[in-house]
């Protein structure tokens, strides 16, 4: 892996983690009885930026390196399901996240008075933030398993 790809992979992981942490912060804030819209706006925006950056860097890494250098190692190892199940799930489940992040951020940035007045809307936003966080967490855990499997050759 050349230095540019290493930096790309580091950015993919760090901004992905920041995005999941931002969804978590939005969820914790939405569960509070008194909403702090300053931090809700900040974290919802961080979630959108983080998830898009993670998407682009992850996509680049997959297209340029993973497919040729990592996937064959995992497929030939004793754990081919790590690619067949986890990587495939990670790729496809991830696609929900940019849309969930955008919905969450748009609602928080532009529907402040509606959220404060409508308990039902707040509950839906809690569910949206919860879904984004839980899906993000699963993707992080799947990434850990895939990353571990990539080193099986040296085991």
């Amino acid at each position: 892996m050349n230095p540019a790809l290493k930096i790309n992979l580091i950015v993919h992981i760090v901004v992905g983690l920041i995005a999941v942490a931002a969804f978590y912060a939005v969820l914790v804030n939405l569960l509070k009885s008194r909403l702090n819209f300053f931090s809700l706006r900040f974290f919802s925006l961080a979630g959108v930026i983080g998830i898009f950056l993670s998407w682009f860097t992850g996509g680049y890494y997959y297209a340029v390196y993973y497919g040729q250098a990592v996937k064959p190692i995992i497929k030939k190892s004793g754990y081919p399901w790590i690619h067949d199940v986890l990587m495939e799930a990670k790729e496809h489940v991830f696609l929900f996240l940019p849309f969930l992040a955008i919905v969450l951020a748009l609602a928080i940035w532009f529907l402040e008075s509606e959220i404060l007045a409508d308990e039902k809307l707040k509950r839906y936003l809690i569910l949206t933030a919860g879904a984004a966080f839980v899906l993000g967490l699963f993707i992080v855990l799947m990434g850990m398993a895939i990353s571990g499997a990539a080193n099986i050759k040296s085991g």
Partner: peptide
Amino acid sequence: YRMEGVAPE
């Protein structure tokens, strides 16, 4: 550890 090729076990 991933970049240094440390065995997952």
